[in-house]
C-alpha cells in the first residue's frame, strides 16, 4: 500500500506548498509497534512522516476545533463522515475552510489481535485483496484474513461517502471491504436478553473500573460543548451547584456515563473512539448503540431527535 501513502504525501506536499491549506492533519507511525498516531504538518518538508494503512485508527475530525478559522485539510475514513457532519453542525464550523481527504479504507485492523500474532514486530502493508491484506513482516510476506483481524466497528462499515464538497479529495486506491453481514446490535441484543440482575452486575463491574479520566469525552466529536456539565464551573470552595462530586464511586460514575450516553444520543456518529481510548476497556459503545437502536424505532428519525417529538411517540410506563 506504498502507493497510497505516496499519493497522500504528494497531495499534502502540494496543498501545503501552494498554500491551499495551512495545516494538513493525517497519520504517522507512533513510537510503539502497530501504533499509528495523529500527525500535523504545517510545512511541505514535514509530509514525509505521513502514512495511511489499516492501523490508522484515530478519528481526526475533532482536532478541527483546535484550528477553527484556519484552512485545514484532514484525512478521514468513510465511517467518520457522520461524526464530521455532526461536529460541523454543532459548532457551526466554516465548511469552506476544511478540505476533507477521504482515504480509501478496506477495513481497519485490530492492533490487539495483531499483537498476539506478531508480538510487536513492525508490519509493512503491501496490498489489499478484498478479503485479506498482504503484509511484510521482516523478510516474510504474510496474508491476513480480514475476518480474523478486523477492528470490531469495521464489521458494520457504512461504506458511504456522500455529501462531499467539490473541493474535497477522494484518494484513489484499489481497496474493498466485502460485506460481512454482521448485526451491529448483536452485543446490545445479547445483553438485553440477560436477566436484569445480570445486566446490573455487568455494568457495576465495568463501571467500577472507571477512573474518570474523561478520555471518552475529550475524544468524542459529539462532545463539543464549550462548557461541559461535568466540569465544575467554579473553583474549590465556591462550588455549590455541581452535578456530582469527583468521587470515583458508582453513583457518580453511573451518572456520568448515562448522562453522556443521553447527551450524544441521536447525534453520535458511532466512530467508536470512546471505546478505543478507554484505558480500562469500558464497553461504552454498548450504551450508545442501545440508544441508537431505540431511537431508530421512533417515528420521524432525524438529527436532534431528542430535541423534538412526534404525536405518535411510544408511551413511557
Amino acid at each position: 500500500m506504498r502507493g497510497l501513502t505516496e499519493a497522500l504525501r504528494e497531495l499534502a506536499y502540494r496543498l501545503l506548498r501552494e498554500g491551499e491549506v495551512e495545516l494538513f492533519l493525517g497519520y504517522s507511525w507512533g513510537t510503539l509497534p502497530l501504533v499509528v498516531r495523529p500527525c500535523f504538518a504545517t510545512r511541505p518538508e514535514q509530509v514525509e512522516a505521513f502514512i495511511f494503512n489499516p492501523l490508522c485508527l484515530p478519528n481526526l475530525v475533532k482536532y478541527l476545533l483546535r484550528f477553527e478559522g484556519r484552512r485545514v485539510a484532514v484525512v478521514v475514513k468513510k465511517c467518520e463522515l457522520p461524526s464530521f457532519r455532526q461536529l460541523l453542525a454543532d459548532r457551526n464550523l466554516e465548511r469552506k475552510k476544511i478540505r476533507l481527504v477521504v482515504a480509501p479504507c478496506g477495513g481497519l485492523l485490530d492492533p490487539a489481535k495483531l499483537q498476539k500474532e506478531f508480538s510487536g514486530q513492525p508490519l509493512e502493508f503491501i496490498a489489499d485483496r478484498g478479503k485479506e491484506y498482504v503484509v511484510r513482516v521482516g523478510e516474510e510476506e504474510k496474508v491476513l484474513a480480514k475476518q480474523l483481524y478486523l477492528y470490531p466497528r469495521c464489521f458494520s462499515c457504512p461504506q458511504k461517502d456522500e455529501d462531499l464538497e467539490p473541493e474535497d479529495i477522494r484518494l484513489e486506491f484499489s481497496t474493498s471491504l466485502p460485506s460481512l453481514e454482521v448485526d451491529p446490535y448483536a452485543g446490545v441484543s445479547y445483553l438485553e436478553e440477560r436477566p436484569a440482575e445480570e445486566r446490573r452486575e455487568f455494568w457495576d463491574r465495568v463501571f467500577k473500573r472507571c477512573i474518570r479520566c474523561y478520555a471518552c469525552r475529550e475524544v468524542c466529536p459529539a462532545c463539543s460543548c464549550h462548557e461541559c456539565c461535568f466540569d465544575p464551573p467554579l473553583p474549590g470552595w465556591q462550588r455549590t451547584v455541581d452535578w456530582m462530586s469527583k468521587a470515583h464511586w458508582l453513583p457518580e460514575i453511573y451518572q456520568y456515563h448515562l448522562t453522556r450516553a443521553l447527551h450524544v444520543a441521536g447525534r453520535c456518529g458511532e466512530c467508536g473512539e470512546c471505546e478505543r481510548v478507554c484505558p480500562v476497556k469500558i464497553p461504552l459503545m454498548l450504551l450508545v448503540k442501545k440508544l441508537a437502536k431505540e431511537i431508530q424505532s421512533l417515528p420521524g428519525v432525524e438529527p436532534g431527535i431528542l430535541a423534538s417529538y412526534s404525536p405518535d411517540d411510544p408511551e413511557p410506563h
Binding site: V188, E192, E201, L262, E294
Partner: peptide, 8 residues
C-alpha cells in the same frame, strides 16, 4: 426508561 432498564 430504555437506558435505565438496559443497565439493570
Amino acid at each position: 426508561q430504555r437506558l435505565l432498564e438496559f443497565v439493570g
